[in-house]
Structures are given as structure tokens and as C-alpha cells.
């Protein structure tokens, strides 16, 4: 069903409360056709609630949702033809094989037997699961389960795909494989709505990102435009041994144009609006008895933007995802 709408997803004034607590608080955004859109935020920020609202698993208290021009808030079933959803937990059927799971998911979208069998076979090949096609889903590794869940999400070739934390809890190699699959889907023209804890993942994959904190969008732009102001700042990290007490205060007095932050473990972060004078900084530290082991310029990243905009330390975000079982 192609309605010819310019926007793949259009949310206007979307709100959702659970009891008295606002989970999503009047958010508005659009996702263009063919775009890979990242939705970033800490746990409990409202990412999954937003996905549930957009996919028809929850009803908004206020606001409207357009999916390729179809009003999802009044007719979610019509919009569900146009979307594929990969939830944050692999919720396929443990008692069915990989092939049977894909065929069953195809049937849910009304695909005929031959059509869904052919598509399931094709996807198992693309996702590197052909050898495990006849194995029960219960016996799959976490990474395999996640890949099959993505395959199930696109069995009916939806123009829009929702991915909720696709690499959380997956090992490094598995996560890399999944990121490659997402990039391929994006390249083939699928609109992808991606929520993730991994800011570097969003930076690598997404065209545009939105930051959501406590149910509100606090920033939305292209990755490039978000990072540009960071490029004007100069950031270094200096690693030292035996840093005497009071060094940070002395540094601030000795280099008034720079800002210093103790990152613990002998790592000092230096931030300035012009180039950091590395030589004099190292000499300054060594004169006070510190042994400088490394000094490197930090590339500006989306993580810096996230920290600046949300006020949430990226380390805190990482701790959250580790708690959730992350490893990517």
C-alpha cells in the first residue's frame, strides 16, 4: 500500500501516560522515506513506548501518528501492513524451527505458502542462518535469535522497519554482523527506525537522530550537524601516573583558557576553544611529578553531543546497557 506520502513516519504531539506518570510527553518528529532514523535515550526515557505507539501496540492519549500517510492512531491495522517490528527481546516461537518461524510470520501477513517458503529460504541465506534452518529456535544462540527476529520483521518486505535495541546483549562479532544487515536494509531503500543504547552505533548507522529524555525529545538533527559544533572544540585526554593532589586546580590556574576534568584512573580530560598546547601541558604535569604515559586528541563524537544535550554521562548509559546484558 503506497499512499505517496512524503514522510514514512509522522508523529505529532504524541503523549502517553501510565497512571499519572508521563512515559511520552507531547513528542513530534518525522522520519523521511528511506531514512535511517536513530532514537536515543537512557532506560525509561520512552523509547519502547514510542515504538509501541507507532506500531499499534499502544494507544496514544493525545496526538496523531502517520505511517506512510495512513493514520495509525485511528486505524492501526491498516498501518501494520506497512511495518515490520523487531522487538528488544527475540519473541519468536521456541518450539518451531528457524524456517517454520519465518513461514509462520509470513502467514500472519497473508503470504501464500509458496511465496513465504521461498522468501524464508532467501532470508535464511541472507542472514547466514541457512545451516540452522531446521533447528529449533530455542537452540539458537543470542545473535542467531536476533538475526532471525530481524528476518521475521522483514519477511513481508515492509517499507518501514522498527528495530528496538537490535544489538543489546549480542557479542561484538554478532553485533557487527547485525549492523551490517541494518546498513544493507537501509541501502535497499527500507526506512529504518532504530532505538539503541549504543550512541556510537547510531553515529555509525543513522542519517538523523533524536534524543529522548524523560519522555521528551531534547534534540533532533542529522548526525553531521549535531557533531559540527563539537568539531570547533578541542578535546584531549592525558593519561598520567602518580598525579599529585591539587594538580587539577593548578592546571586550571596555569591554563585559564582550558577546562580540565578528572576522569579517574589518572586520566585528565582537557577541553579548549583553541588548540591545546600539548608540549607545555605535558611539561607542566611532569614538573609536578606526574608521569605522562599518553596524550591524544579526541575525535568529536555523538556521545559528546548526547552528554552535552541530555546532561547524562555516557558512562552511566553504558552501565545501564551492561546491566541489560549488553556486550556490543
Amino acid at each position: 500500500m503506497d499512499t505517496g506520502a512524503a514522510q514514512a513516519i509522522e508523529a505529532r504531539g504524541l503523549s502517553k501516560r501510565f497512571d499519572a506518570v508521563p512515559a511520552v510527553d507531547g513528542i513530534s518528529f518525522t522520519v523521511r522515506r528511506g531514512e535511517l532514523f536513530g532514537f536515543l535515550g537512557p532506560n525509561g526515557a520512552g523509547k519502547t513506548t514510542t515504538i509501541n505507539l507507532l506500531t499499534g501496540l499502544a494507544r496514544p492519549d493525545a496526538g496523531t501518528i502517520g505511517i506512510n500517510g495512513v493514520d495509525c492512531s485511528t486505524d492501526p491495522k491498516a498501518a501494520q501492513h506497512l511495518i515490520g517490528v523487531v522487538p528488544d527481546e527475540s519473541n519468536l516461537y521456541p518450539e518451531l524451527t528457524g524456517f517454520e518461524n519465518l513461514c509462520f510470520c509470513g502467514a500472519l501477513y497473508g503470504m501464500r505458502k509458496n511465496e513465504r517458503r521461498a522468501r524464508a529460504g532467501e532470508l535464511l541465506g541472507v542472514f547466514g542462518l541457512a545451516d540452522a534452518a531446521d533447528r529449533k529456535f530455542a537452540g539458537y544462540s543470542r545473535g542467531m535469535k536476533r538475526r532471525l527476529a530481524i528476518a521475521a520483521g522483514i519477511i513481508h518486505e515492509p517499507p518501514i522497519l522498527f528495530l528496538d535495541e537490535p544489538t543489546t546483549g549480542i557479542d561484538v562479532a554478532g553485533a557487527r554482523q547485525i549492523r551490517r544487515l541494518i546498513a544493507d536494509l537501509h541501502e535497499s531503500g527500507t526506512t529504518v527506525f532504530l532505538t539503541t543504547h549504543y550512541i556510537e552505533e547510531a553515529e555509525r548507522l543513522c542519517d538523523r537522530v533524536a534524543f529522548i529524555v524523560a519522555g521528551r525529545i531534547v534534540g533532533i538533527d542529522t548526525v553531521e550537524r549535531f557533531i559540527q559544533p563539537e568539531r570547533d572544540r578541542h578535546v584531549m585526554q592525558v593519561s598520567c601516573l602518580n598525579v599529585p593532589d591539587g594538580t587539577l586546580r593548578e592546571l586550571a590556574e596555569g591554563f585559564p583558557d582550558s577546562r580540565f576534568q578528572d576522569l579517574s584512573g589518572g586520566v585528565i580530560r582537557v577541553e579548549a576553544d583553541s588548540a591545546v598546547p600539548v608540549g607545555s601541558l605535558v611539561r607542566f604535569l611532569e614538573e609536578r611529578g606526574a608521569e605522562v604515559t599518553e596524550a591524544r586528541r579526541m575525535r568529536p563524537s555523538l556521545e559528546d553531543v548526547f552528554v552535552r544535550i541530555t546532561g547524562i554521562e555516557a558512562a552511566a548509559l553504558r552501565r545501564e546497557k551492561e546491566k541489560k546484558g549488553g556486550g556490543a
Binding site: 499499534g56 501496540l57 519473541n91 519468536l92 500472519l108
Partner: peptide
């Protein structure tokens, strides 16, 4: 409880 029911609720069937 296993959330596989969500898959059915997401399907475009009444």
C-alpha cells in the same frame, strides 16, 4: 508472558 503474543497483535489481522 513470553511476548510471542505481541507478534500476533502486531500482525495486520483484525
Amino acid at each position: 508472558k513470553g511476548r510471542s503474543f505481541e507478534r500476533l497483535l502486531l500482525a495486520p489481522i483484525p
